[in-house]
Amino acid sequence: MTDASATTPLDLNANAPRGQKPKKRFAPRNIMLYATLFVFAVYYALPLYVMIVTSLKGMPEIRLGNVFGPPLEVTFQPWVKAWSEACTGINCDGLSRGFWNSVQILIPSVVISIAVASVNGYALSNWRFKGSEIFYNILIIGAFIPYQVMLYPIAIILRELNLFGTLGGLVMVHTIFGMPILTLLFRNYFASVPEELFKAARVDGAGFWGIYFRIMLPMSLPIFVVAIILQVTGIWNDFLFGVIYTKPDIYPMTVQLNNIVNSVQGVKEYNVNMAATLITGLVPLVIYFASGKLFVRGIAAGAVKG
């Protein structure tokens, strides 16, 4: 066989291909590809652009032009107004009230829900007991139950616990509804930790909490970051629970924003509305742009939340 190939005459044409294969940078296929991506990028980026430019225009300019034009005269007045003067019914202290309410709801909700769920996930992956898988399965199927089914009885439970209309009540609701996805997240993460590590720690005499705090916690920083991103975004963006389980003076930001923008009385101040919308979206946006790949990991992991 080797003999045969040696006798085959080689194609020794001077122009024969040699060296690096020439690349066609502007092949029609590539142009199509980038053009399609670009068109989609415009569709996705447009609303953010519109929010920004509208919020920087004065009302007269808005009435004359369309939403897409850049501001001729940049003004920050709408932002100031949205933050501290816009009215919702009786209160006229702007979104700042809702912002602080949301912060007050957010911090305990995120901390408690993650603390509870991480311990759940840890117990489920390393300390299974009879029935633990059943409860876990109920939890996961529960994630698909429309919230509407559980809204009213939960309101009754909160009332019985004297938590209805309070921050504590809302924190509890967020902890409950964050539990399926977070538990899944932590359970899968802890299950991926080599079982031998857990065994070694038991031989070394560490107990349930010892292993959790000394071995597992220090190892699972990334998953905690993912969980925090998931929860901060989710809780900040919540509207339904906020509107049902809180009272007007502790309404979270989303509820207040909707009340400001969709209030029927008075002249519509579109620039203020867009500034308010943008301010409300700012927290999750900052988290999104700052966390990059971790956010992607979080939503891919948290996909079941639906």
């Binding site: 996705y44 609303p47 519109v50 923008v261 956010f295 939503i299």
Partner: peptide, 25 residues
């Protein structure tokens, strides 16, 4: 760019598209 809207709430989404689809502006 494709994913950032997912970080925003439905309230923000609804309001900004209400504005973009506003017939007058």
């Amino acid at each position: 760019i494709f994913l950032y809207p997912f970080a925003l709430s439905f309230i923000v989404t609804g309001l900004v598209w209400q504005w973009i689809l506003n017939p007058d502006f």
